[in-house]
Nucleic acid binder design. Structure first.
Lengths: 239, 239
DNA sequence: AAGTGGTCTAGACCACAGT
DNA sequence: CTGTGGTCTAGACCACTTG
């Protein structure tokens, strides 16, 4: 895909905001002004500005202008679509992944409903625990439709399944639905995690869709209570 | 504000999807086709389609078309910006709100940082418990900047603060940042909630901004573990 | 090659804020 | 009144998918 013209504009403005060239509380140049500066049309400038607003860097106010927000006070992942690696890197922690299981299974009743697939499809089943600073605090159970992912190796699972899917297989992850609840710890949780006295885990169910709108992955991520944290940044939707 | 032209188009398409006039898995008419049908330009049609995609009704695929998604299998709140009333209504449960405290306070150190306000501002402090089917399972602690909300009554707190803010005061809530963690139950939690044996609560911190980019509300929502549920629908962001 | 969605443009009018 | 962002238009070219 050709690089969008508004992306370099977005990046440039983002840099300038993060380096305080545009200061929090003050306003960006007007859309017409920016269109001139970047030698582009106003609508294209607006796409860059809308992205900035979407990602929490500015707040647009009709009739006034685009106000620069205080980025340092609001450093959140834009939304929950990040892999464990990305999250860990941001935290600057020592992390390790243990692969406990990697198998190809026939779909059972419950899973076929979760994945909206027919009962004769096969799924990769991956069970991994995640260590942060030496403690096993997250248990990830992934189920991936085999017809989308013909091969899967232990090495890939230890590194990053997302990387493999997006960069090696060139599948595009498009959107995901998340559900967060708290559940009683299972025997498997107690076995594979360092739970200590905790009797519950935070359960994050994740439904991942490809860009052709097909569901292809279901993931259960089970977190020790005291190490769980989720950040969400929501705009009011219109309509 | 004048009604956007793309909104009625969005509503019409949404209706047709929910009434199965456009069937899941099949495609919508092309953008050019729709532009003709609704007697508008293609860019305007695209705004309606982008809204549909954003809200999970369709999935656009370049070169192919807009695929209708199965709405029944994915009925989620689009994102976490919904009030307790709205959530409860969707659940079809018997709900009740108890107001334990409604006072005007001087900002202390911790809160002034949370609200990014000066120490001499005053805040409304509202403490409410929420009953669902007769059990007190949620404790909401709201802090609202008094300079934005001159008056606040017990009646408003029992009904819906959001309603009052948006419909009576005509302030527009623009976006919110959420943070979800699990914490030890406090004495106040034990006092005001029916916690049973639970020693923890799910803590949802909520930072609410108005459309002029000012933070005006900080809310702590404390949920009993077994009654907590959060659904999130995230699109992959660009850039 | 034809049709699809993705992007870009130049220009227009509107609603809102500050003067 | 001027300047701001919000919307809409008509037309153009591009990249991708399908026949």
């Amino acid at each position: 895909m050709r690089q969008n013209k508004f992306v370099p504009i977005y990046n440039d403005l983002q840099d300038k905001i993060q380096n305080n060239i545009y200061e929090p509380g003050l306003k960006l140049p007007s859309e017409n002004e920016l269109a001139l500066q970047y030698n582009t049309s106003r609508e294209t400038t607006r796409k860059a500005l809308n992205l900035l607003a979407q990602n929490g860097f500015i707040q647009k106010v009709q009739g006034k202008g685009s106000i620069v927000l205080d980025v340092n006070k609001m450093n959140f992942p834009v939304s929950g679509l990040v892999s464990f690696k990305e999250v860990a890197r941001n935290l600057g922690k020592e992390v390790k992944t243990n692969v406990h299981e990697l198998s190809l299974q026939q779909l059972n009743e419950g899973l076929s409903q979760m994945l909206q697939a027919t009962i004769d499809d096969q799924v990769w089943c991956v069970v991994r625990s995640r260590e942060i600073d030496g403690e096993k605090v997250i248990l990830d159970k992934d189920y991936l439709l085999q017809k989308k992912i013909p091969r899967l190796t232990r090495e890939v699972c230890e590194h990053s399944i997302y990387d493999y899917i997006e960069n090696e297989l060139n599948l595009t992850i498009s959107f995901a639905k998340k559900e967060i609840t708290v559940e009683n710890a299972s025997l498997q949780d107690e076995e594979l995690l360092d739970l200590g006295d905790h009797k519950h885990v935070v359960l994050v169910k994740n439904f991942v869709y490809l860009d052709d709108a097909t569901l292809f992955q279901y993931t259960e991520s089970r977190h020790r209570l005291d190490k769980f944290r989720f950040v969400d940044f929501a705009r009011r939707s219109r309509g």
